[in-house]
Write a protein that binds this DNA or RNA. Sequence first.
DNA 1: CCGGACTCCTGGTTGC
DNA 2: TGCAACCAGGAGTCCG
Length: 312
Amino acid sequence: MPELPEVEVVRAGLEPAITGATATSVTVVDERSLRRHDGPSEDFIDRLTGRVFQTPQRRGKFLWIPLEVGVTARHGEGAELQSVNSHGDALVAHLGMSGQVLLRDRTTDDRLTRIRIELDHPDHGALRLNFVDQRIFGSMSIDSMLPTVDQPHLVMPSQVAHIARDPLDPFFDDATFLRKLKAKRTTVKRALLDQTLISGIGNIYADEALWAARVHYNQPTESLSRAKAILLLAEVRLVFVKALAEGGTSFDTQYLNVNGESGYFAHSLNVYGQQGNACPRCGRLVVREQFMNRGSHFCRFCQRIRVGARAV
DNA sequence: CCGGACTCCTGGTTGC
DNA sequence: TGCAACCAGGAGTCCG
């Protein structure tokens, strides 16, 4: 599924292609892809049509494109230029399990397109942005930008406000993360997947980072040594950076494919989906267990629950 | 605060 | 060949 590296590949790919483009036409093929939009599809279309895209942003697995303020073309003959809010709006996208953002020319469509946005770019001309999503766990929405609680000068879509910084964010605070992790009364994989603690990690990279750090998914966070916690955070960053590097190579400005299943995932997975295969480190069999309604892949020998290590 | 259950959801794949 | 069962799980919500 799309996690931080996949979403970042999309963001980085969209940036040069669509920044400055105008949304000339919007088609909602399947309203269920607007589940995070507060209002009917007509409202989504009205608030997006005629707007100009600014630089795409990302936090964790959320992606958004701020819309230039001041142009509310569709709304009335200039009569009621609604001052929505002082910080403007953004087109927010979450890819969910199977979402893709595909940049096409005007003649190309994709089978599972749920939302289609026609764009006109001053340099690149006519473009089409297809939001494709098989399972419809993803969504698009128009959301208000609001100042964040901790940093009032930093604005962000309201539905992203509760999402923690991701570990590739230059302002991610390691010390704070380690403190909060320690304070939690939960187990380590659950904590890694908690987007309010650290964002961007999904099932695949959680399993990969835990394997790399030799930590069992069910290790209580309070008994995780500080050294292990630091190592784990480093391994999270490492798998992200590796995936990002590989994802970047297959990037093509005219075709942004972010299907996590295909492409760069395949050749660098050590445990995810590898049940029955040999652990690359010790040669014993990788196993899969049910945890949190999903699969946990790990090596019973390399990753064992350790007791004690209750630092002061 | 925490965890578990539940909901959303579909098409490629598997099995008979 | 045909069809039904199976499977993947991010995120929000509710409840005990």
